[in-house]
Design a protein around this nucleic acid. Structure first.
Length: 787
DNA sequence: TCATCAATTGGCCAC
DNA sequence: CAATTGATGA
């Protein structure tokens, strides 16, 4: 191949790789080796462009596999890129650094564990591990857990890390932050002592390593000629800073950083994503040309019209309009239902109709803003016998029994991992209670050692059982020397007593299946990663898959970590599929967030009501509202052929009936593209569903079917009415009725949610839609009923 | 005094 | 589902 970066047009005709690309895509694929920003609209063939560019760079000899780094946000995206590349290239793609931010950071830290001041077999805390670790710190500091909610403190710490702040850098402006910084400091000490890192730490630690070690930095800047970043709009401050370490603006090494993103699909501000990174990138790297991919290959015209019109209401966009050659297609259908129950029924009918019409069920997606909304839909689907799959429940590696097993495995590698220690020290129960553990923790704190190390110190009081536990761990560790990963896990399941426990547990059958599945997963992992049979301590071998996240040779010695450590890492970073039930033709249920990146023939967006979508917590500030609008944009653009929007007048939420008005987003869609299935502007809530019940778990009708695929074991039980619901509340006041519409001179139309008190004290709660939900004193506010 | 088990309660936006 | 509470037994 004689091609060069210049003379692209000639290439296009000759190279089969570049055939069938549209001009925009071609420009992106063959962009010069300099900083570039690709604005890739939904369904514009972004992944194809990314992979084709990598293949083109390699085929034209502009870069070698080792000089490519491609970063994504999800494991799924990384995997897809790898598979696609594998079909395009004649050689093994494993050598390239293709992975998620966290996956690549892990690989980096594994290679430089000494420089990073980490133990070689450091373990990774997932979200729930992090919360429980934070909780332990808060407890040890004897702080009030009401005031310092572990989860929130965890967010605070993650936020600090994403801003590159260590405890000393936290700006303290009040007592609360001072304490938070103190918790952060102690948390950090604790993690260091235990040899564990959380997700944010993976990023920050590798960033700091590069920042503080010029030689290492030079090495990598020399190595990676082409860095490609997917979903750039979702990067946070730290991730952008991390990228800059590899390819600083105006770098003497002349690397090319290619950022691909869509500002209109930025929906992760709540976890630190900065859309502003796109503009900063453009400025800091003096990007000469922004390439826009606006040709959409997914959806019909009406759907794109709706998406374009909606998103045009947002300010601060980089600007982009999707277009298609596919024709207008069917109009977008809009359905209004009296209740969420009725909405679910309507969905059933629609799905049955679509399915009879020849559409696969897996091509139908039901989207909602928040997880709580899935319950009603699930029960309706279940009662109708329609197979379905819920995304985003507990994933495989997050299941309690699997985490227990993993905790034992972690202790084999690193007995100082207190999180794992506490998880299983008394599970199955072996006579070690709260008091004993408290003593142990005191002893550990006094000497600054791990719980495991402190066991001998309190051997006197109740320590016999503890000693038995550490002996169990030690002997299992000895026993498993030289075993294969599969054998190790089977041994651990046996000697830990987990198998026996679940065998006697009355509903342990399913958990046993999952433990079995864990063994399978390990087996599959070993096959995939190409580990040999001899388990621990493989010999030095640079060729043995340095490309996979699991198998990273030490930067100095080249030693490859043991399959067990690799597998534990895999478990932390991948969290597993949600027991895919792959192959089954089932309707897909998920939140709008988890739908990002997916596409379906038919999409239902449900619960389009003020307060729900847009969510009430986001309505008050303009940025929040714009993010909700982007979320709606993402939802709309998931649909290929058929899109339906739906909203209800009443909905059970958090145990009470709420009255809603339709989402403002309906006013922001082109009327021409919509087809209303129900008459417009009919009266407000009919009260249809008032007596209808609490969607919460307690005594609910969905026993055992929370989470996907458990359909066959679920049983529908008519839910009892809780005492709190039986209380009669006043529903009428001077012509006003709960559930009916009201008019306020300042706030306009709303729906009356609640009436309370009497006389001068009478007050009303009204949902005014875009003005939010307000409490009003009836003696002051002028409310008039509307029909 | 401590551990265990069953019953009860709180949860309340997205990853 | 996890965390908490209260009764029961060692």
């Amino acid at each position: 191949m004689t091609s060069s970066p210049v003379g692209v047009a000639a290439d296009a005709a000759s190279s089969p790789l570049l055939r069938n690309l549209n001009p925009e895509q071609l420009a992106a694929v063959t962009a010069a080796a300099e900083p570039a920003l690709i604005l890739a609209g939904a369904g514009s063939g972004k992944t194809r462009v990314l992979t084709t560019r990598i293949a083109w760079l390699l085929n034209t000899g502009q870069v070698s596999p080792g000089g490519v780094m491609a970063v994504t946000f999800t494991n799924k995206a990384a995997k897809e890129m790898q598979t696609r590349l594998a079909t395009m290239l004649p050689f093994n793609v494993r050598g390239m650094w293709i992975g998620t931010f966290h996956g690549l950071c892990n690989r980096f830290l594994r290679a430089h564990w000494k420089l990073a001041h980490l133990p070689q077999a450091f373990q990774i805390l997932d979200a729930s591990d992090t919360t429980s670790a934070v909780k332990r710190v808060i407890k040890a500091m004897k702080l009030d857990e009401e005031r310092f909610v572990p989860k929130q403190v965890g967010w605070f710490i993650a936020g600090c890390k994403e801003d590159g702040q260590r405890p000393g850098d936290v700006v303290v402006h009040d007592e609360q932050t001072r304490k938070l910084a103190e918790i952060y400091a102690n948390y950090e000490d604790q993690c260091q002592r235990e040899g564990v890192v959380d997700f944010a730490e993976l990023m920050l630690r590798s960033y700091e390593l590069l920042r503080d070690n010029p030689a290492v930095r030079e090495h990598y800047q020399n190595r990676f000629r082409h860095i490609l970043v997917d979903e750039f709009q979702d990067t946070n401050k730290l991730q952008y800073a991390w990228l800059k370490m590899f390819a600083p603006p105006g770098s003497a090494h002349g690397q090319s950083l290619l950022a691909v993103g869509d500002d209109d699909q930025s929906i992760y501000a709540f976890r630190g994503a900065r859309v502003g990174n796109m503009i900063d990138f453009e400025r800091e790297y003096r990007v000469q040309r922004v390439i826009k991919l606006e040709q959409n290959y997914r959806s019909f015209g009406h759907i794109l019209d709706a998406a374009n019109e909606l998103i045009s209401r947002n300010s601060q966009r980089l600007g982009k309009t999707l277009r298609t050659d596919a024709g207008q297609g069917e109009p977008i259908r809009v359905q209004e239902s009296p209740s969420d129950f009725a909405e679910a029924q309507w969905l059933i009918e629609e799905i049955q109709h679509l399915h009879r019409g020849g559409l696969d069920r897996k091509e139908i997606a039901i989207l909602y803003r928040s997880n709580a909304q899935s319950r009603v839909i699930e029960s309706a689907l279940f009662n109708s016998g329609i197979p379905y799959r819920v995304y985003g429940g507990l994933r495989f590696f997050e299941r309690a029994e699997v985490k227990h097993a993993l905790a034992y495995l972690r202790l084999l590698e690193n007995a100082n991992d207190d999180t794992s220690f506490l998880r299983v020290v008394n599970f199955p129960t072996r006579g070690i209670g709260a008091k004993t553990l408290e003593n142990l923790q005191d002893a550990a704190k006094a000497t600054g050692r791990s719980l495991y190390q402190s066991v001998s110190a309190i051997a006197g009081k109740g320590g016999a059982n503890l000693l038995a536990f550490t002996n169990l761990i030690d002997s299992t560790r000895n026993l498993t020397q030289g075993m294969t990963l599969r054998e190790i896990i089977e041994q651990v399941l046996q000697t830990s007593g987990l198998l026996d426990f679940y065998r006697t547990d009355k509903d342990g059958a399913e958990r046993l299946e999952n433990l079995d599945e864990l063994v399978n997963a390990a087996e599959a992992f070993v096959m995939q990663e190409g580990f040999g049979k001899n388990a621990v301590g493989l010999p030095v071998d640079e060729t043995a898959q340095p490309g996979t996240p699991g198998a990273v040779p030490d930067a100095e010695t080249g030693e490859i970590m043991s399959p067990l450590v690799a597998f534990l890492t895999h478990a932390s970073l991948e969290a597993g599929d949600n027991q895919a039930q792959a192959g089954q033709d089932a309707v897909q249920l998920m939140t709008v967030h988890s739908a990002k990146g997916l596409e379906f023939d038919a999409v239902f967006i449900t619960g389009l009501e003020e307060g729900l979508f847009p969510h009430e917590n986001a309505m008050s500030d303009p940025n929040g509202l714009e993010e909700e609008r982007r979320l709606m944009y993402v939802a709309i653009t998931r649909a290929r052929k058929k899109l339906s929007l739906s909203f209800c007048q009443t909905r059970m939420l958090h145990g009470q009936t709420r009255y809603h008005i339709k989402s403002r987003f309906f006013d922001e869609l082109p009327e021409d593209a919509l087809k209303w299935l129900t008459p417009r502007n009919q009266g407000f809530g009919s009260g249809f569903a008032r007596e209808y019940q609490n969607a919460w778990d307690r005594g609910s009708g969905l026993k055992g079917m929370v989470g996907a695929g458990r359909v066959e074991k679920a049983a529908w039980v008519e839910p009892p009415v809780p005492a709190s619901m039986k209380q009669k509340v006043s529903e009428e006041h001077g012509g006003l009725r709960v559930g009916k519409g009201v008019f306020h001179t300042k706030f306009g139309e709303g729906v009356l949610l609640t009436l309370e008190g009497a006389g001068a004290d009478a007050r009303a709660q009204v949902n005014f839609g875009r003005h939010g939900t307000k409490w009003l004193a009836l003696s002051v506010a002028k409310l008039t009923p509307i029909d």
